[in-house]
Amino acid sequence: MIGFVSSLQPLGELVLVNACLAFSQYVVLRAGVFSLATAGFASLGAYGAAILAARHGVPMPLALVGAGLIGAVAGLVLSVPLSRLRGVYQAIATLAFVQIVLSLALYLEPVTGGAMGMNGLPRLIGGWELILVFGVIFYAMLALSRAGIGSTFDAIRQEETVAVSLGIRVVDYHRLAFALSGALGGLGGGLMALRNYSLVPEDFGFPLLIAVLTFVVLGGRVSPVGPVVGAAVLTLLPEIARPLADYRLLVNGVLMVLVIIYWPHGIVDTIRLHLRQRRHAVSQAAP
């Protein structure tokens, strides 16, 4: 029993880290920005936090804040040129950003350790710290939904021309989304760095980009519960159904195709829409 629980703990921690990264992807998608930059932000945050904590002895909370700030600044800088682009062009440009960060991490050996990466990092983050950080982020995401920013994002995503005709300054909101995505991605990367003992540039390449995107597609990109559910399902599924672990890639692929074709809103938002429609049907039948 104790063995089972202790095997669950690292898994639970992984879910929380993945959920933070998923939020970084969620924020931009909700605002109608097709950014794939989360992996790049995570890389910057991870190296930032590792360098701050391991080389300069900066306390863990400050190192995490640093990681988030680095990501936020990167997101803001990226948003200046990228808020001019749309759709696939935006996706490809942010893909370029991820690849540039990856190759620079390989190239700048004196800073990043190059292909060997950084090893022997202190493990400064455990379960409680993760729960705390996750709680803060989740509150922030709920706040986004409750105080009107979320619905502004929703309007921009669904009908950008309508949004501008209502006086919504789309560029400003896209900058905000990029900055938030950068902050969350950087923070997620910082969490990875401070609990993984080591870092290599390839941790933050195309596979992470795909994984994070899958979390949000599966979970949903409107309700903040969506990314958490997506991250949890995809992290836990191969572990719970052990035989599936060898076919992780296959399972991911099949899930992605099925969800985007049959449940394009993702698990959580599809259920939400369904419930709303049912409530509406009930309220119409009542009078």
Binding site: A140, A147, G148, G167
Partner: peptide, 24 residues
């Protein structure tokens, strides 16, 4: 209909980001 009131919002961005009582 509510989204039409967007341009009239007055609470600062930070208050809305943090869902402060004034923004709510």
């Amino acid at each position: 209909v509510a989204i039409g009131f967007h341009a009239q919002q007055k609470s600062p961005l930070l208050a809305r980001l943090l869902a402060l009582p004034a923004a709510l």
